[in-house]
Design a protein around this nucleic acid. Structure first.
Lengths: 341, 341
DNA sequence: GATTAGCACTCGACTTTAATGAGTGCTAAC
DNA sequence: GTTAGCACTCATTAAAGTCGAGTGCTAATC
């Protein structure tokens, strides 16, 4: 579809624009070593590329900037994936060679590293619930009517929730229930916990204790997996350093979007495995129509565990970010693989 | 020190400036119903007030704006504290009459309400460690070498940490240790846990188990209270709506400051009880020299539990914010009082 | 003596105009 | 097919001019 020369020129324009954030003129392309043609020739090619929809002109006498289609072609065919420099690489390596105990810490820290290395905003979704299973369930009484329910997963993640003991149910009875749960439910994936509880434990419990209904109700609440605090953001203020967002109002709509858990969940829902690039208007959310979102899922044994995302302006260092995500998602999978044994 | 008329004029100027964010001229003050003097008279008084340091002039032919000293006088002597409207009040009341189980949820939600009602940024510090005590300590083994240590406090708060079992120590031994800890340490304030462990338990443990040194080391790590995730922010992007922060760079230094846990801790450390107002340069942090920080501690039985803060431009609605903080800090104390029984 | 009307003056904000120059498209020569 | 040359476009910047809100001071008034 495009000639070699057109590809070369398109590549040069996008590279330049990514660096400078300014419309690129024919002269500056000609002066680069790698394209040995005069400005006039390049102008002709640029006009063709614009006609084909790969470039745009902010106004008549300005240079060209890439269109969404241009970026798309660049990402699909042109970009060079070896743009991670040695320094960054060693930083990543040393991070993943460290031994860390807390999974949340790992994720939080990984988010920080990503936003630092890229100067964009990083968004991490932690390992999904359905891939972890119950390791231990316990109940710590606080007083006569309330207790803390604690759920430990096989990955060492801990969820806790305060519950009210139903009136008429004694603490001894509750402890009996907990013992039963621990013998019957250990190893069950978290996401199945609730259904399993109802399907298989109803009669079982009924035999041992009174007030079965109320107890089940409370346990339901306790086992409700809350997926609220599983989004880790880092480098949100990096958005403010991008020249395209020097306008406060624009940046506010973006930051407000990042504050909304459901919106982020929606952006990340149903992503295909591997690396995914959504450029500008390819995103559903209007607030990030000037942004690109690059996501990578990480998985162990073919099971997707979570997602890493980088949000930046459409004028993004695609090569660097994609390479980095590739590396980190794999390291992440490796590290978590050890966790899941 | 100031005449009645000067106070009245100062009050009028600050009120106007808080509403408009523009330097206030003599004419506009004169036109307000409450000050019955001609612009010329007001100009004379304004000149005096400037000489006294309560007002400033951005440039010769502009109106006056309040200085830090002016705001200080306003806050100390002039501001009207009944500026919370009915609607807001009912919102607060209905929030605190709700029954909620999770303390973290309460705090997070309170932060949201505050930032919504004020349009500034709210910062909440959760109940301090030293006021909570150990309720229960448990250890859930994950595999041969690692386990999750779980600390439940008397308030139902749960801390957890993954630890490595020292080589040579068996799980049975660890469980023995946990039993001992639960009989000896329950009721001890969290902040004293570590010192108590060393001072009183050393010999005790030595008698029962081998590898005492290593076990103590691990427990140390487990009991290390991490005070990281105890800061709750809400409405950070509200900063972006203030006209004084239309400059992206200024707002970035502020948002970056809010991202730094230690900096916030420092701002909130050693606050006297009750409401505290720090105006502009009265703050240590240079990044918020154009901001005012209003804080309120909330306490039960004279014991300070935590702090609520509102950060906004120096041109802040002091009356409203202070009244609101007064109400909310009291309601918060009440609610937590029930918690601590 | 306190208040106010009047007036000259200041100075930022905004508008207008002109100059600059980066970049283009087109044509004709190579 | 490539490129030099040239007229043209148009955002950006600077300079000059206008406007008006607001001041300080003086002298008249209450």
């Amino acid at each position: 579809m495009l000639t070699d020369r057109q590809r070369m020129i398109l590549n040069a324009i996008i590279d330049d624009y990514i660096r400078s954030a300014e419309p690129v003129g024919s002269r500056s392309i000609s002066k680069r070593g790698d394209v040995g043609f005069s400005p006039a020739t390049i102008r002709n090619e640029m006009a063709d590329l614009e006609e084909l929809g790969f470039l745009e002109q902010p106004h008549t006498s300005a240079g060209r900037i890439p269109s969404t289609k241009g970026y798309r072609y660049y990402v699909d065919h042109l970009v060079n994936f070896n743009e991670v420099n040695e320094q960054d690489l060693t930083k990543v390596r040393s991070f993943f060679s460290e031994k860390v105990n807390e999974m949340e810490q790992v994720i939080q820290h990984a988010a920080m590293i990503l936003s630092n290395l890229t100067n964009y905003t990083s968004i991490l979704l932690g390992p999904e619930m359905f891939s972890t299973s119950l390791k231990h369930f316990s109940l710590v009484p606080l007083d006569a009517t309330s207790a803390v329910a604690i759920i430990v997963t096989n990955t060492g993640h801990v969820e806790n929730r305060t519950i009210q003991i139903p009136p008429g149910v004694s603490m001894e009875e509750m402890e009996k229930v907990v013992r039963i749960l621990n013998t019957k439910l250990v190893g069950v994936p978290l996401i199945r916990l609730k259904s399993k509880l109802h399907a298989e434990m109803g009669q079982e419990l009924d035999r041992y204790i009174d007030h079965c209904e109320e107890v089940l109700g409370v346990l339901d609440k306790a086992l409700q997996s809350d997926d609220e605090h599983r989004i880790f953001l880092s480098g949100t203020t990096n958005m403010l350093t991008q020249p395209e967002f020097k306008d406060v109002d624009k940046v506010k709509t973006i930051l407000d979007l990042l504050d909304e858990t459901p919106a982020i969940m929606k952006m990340f829902s149903a992503l295909p495995s591997g690396i995914q690039v959504r450029i500008g208007t390819e995103n559903d959310q209007e607030a990030i129509a000037n942004c690109s979102l690059i996501t990578a899922t990480y998985s162990v044994d073919g099971q997707s565990l979570g997602t890493i995302g980088i949000l930046g302006p459409t004028r993004m260092e695609y090569g660097k970010v994609i390479s980095l995500l590739n590396i980190i998602s794999k390291d992440m999978a490796l590290m978590l693989g050890r966790w899941y044994k």
